[in-house]
Simulated scan of single mutants.
Amino acid sequence: MAATSLSLQIDARWRAATTPPDRPCGMEDIETASSSVVIVRGKEADGSGFWVTPSIVMTNNHVVDHNPDLKVGKDFPATVLATDSVRDIALLSVPNVYPEPVPLRGIEEMPRLADDLYVIGHPIGRNLTVSKGIVSALTNDDYDDRQYIQTDAAISSGSSGGPVVDRCGRVVGMATQTLRGAENVGYAIAWSQLSSHMDRMLKVVEGSSPEERELTYPSDQTEVVAKYYSTLGAGELAEAYDFYSASRKARLPYESWAQGLGKTVFIRLVSVTPGDKSNSVKVHFYSTEEVNAETWEWRTGEFEGTWTLTREGGLWKMNESNIKDITKPTTSP
């Protein structure tokens, strides 16, 4: 499939439509925005999403990751176009939808504290709901440039990937997570971040190889490494091993590699960034493994280093690694 057929160009009219209507904003605008929100169904889980062009839906990466047989709405098959695992963004290609979807408008300006917000989505895979709240805080990630909007509006399971809009129906963010153990504490990725990274992701797709498009394989080297770790953390060892080059597989047979992993149960990526060389990627992550199942003993280590990738069959494959354990020793009380 040619890249041009994926309708990658962002609609200029949607780009320009960032100003509120001439009349006062109200519930009519929220209702209009709701019509551009969809349910994203998969074999393993459901989530929410919204149209950013007439043929592209934005949602969370964790909604589509390891979740085959994706559909938007009831009947429209969806293909993963591009993902950003670290920032939890995914773009889905959904062609030939009729009537043509209306993309949501976004606003680059960050909301202010105590501004009204509306979370629109499909909690637990059910009917569309709208939850009202306010901006409780504006926060930054501890490790990089990620910006989040904290809100007390309800963000339930299944609402992930849905838009967070202002009273004019403009997207200010995308619902991504809630804080476990706390009531009315939810987070949204700021639209200014979503917009800039969407542009970058689409440009990468435009330059992808036929093999990458056919296999929906990441065409960005950093995303190849990120997908490797998310796949490894999901326990899908055979799929993770397939990110290795033929040369690395020859040096490290699957059985030896799998046995050497121990009982890793969770991997949290902190950052995945381009390395100093054109085919290298820097990574920083935490890995938790089971020490004793009977006593529920776990151990978490911190790691960072570099991967070198090689081009193989039109795909980027992970070839050499230099990963170091930088875990700080625990001190006795």
Rank of each mutant, 00 (worst) to 15 (best):
A3C: 04
Q9H: 15
Q9M: 13
D11M: 13
R13I: 07
W14L: 14
R15G: 02
T18S: 13
D22F: 14
R23V: 00
M27H: 10
E28A: 15
D29E: 12
I30A: 13
A33K: 00
S35E: 15
V37C: 10
V38D: 00
V40W: 09
R41C: 14
G49Q: 03
T53I: 08
N60S: 14
V64C: 08
V64Y: 06
N67E: 00
K74Y: 13
P77L: 13
T79V: 02
V80I: 03
L81N: 00
T83G: 03
S85F: 12
I89P: 01
L91E: 03
S93C: 05
P101E: 03
V102C: 03
P111T: 01
P111F: 11
R112W: 11
D115E: 09
L117K: 11
Y118T: 07
V119C: 01
V119S: 09
I124S: 09
T129H: 05
S131G: 04
I134Y: 00
T139V: 11
D144C: 01
D145C: 00
T151V: 04
A153R: 02
S157W: 01
R170D: 01
G173E: 07
A182W: 05
E183M: 04
S195N: 13
H197R: 14
H197Y: 11
L202F: 04
E206T: 15
S209N: 00
P210G: 02
L215C: 10
T216R: 15
Q221A: 08
V225H: 02
A226N: 02
S230D: 06
G235N: 10
A238I: 04
S245G: 03
A250P: 05
L252C: 15
P253T: 01
S256F: 08
A258Q: 14
L261I: 10
G262D: 03
T264H: 09
R268L: 04
L269Y: 02
V270C: 10
V272E: 14
G275F: 12
E289M: 12
E304L: 13
G305N: 11
G305D: 10
T308L: 06
T310M: 07
L315W: 05
K317N: 08
M318D: 04
E320L: 10
N322P: 00
P329D: 06
T331F: 10
T331D: 07
P333W: 15
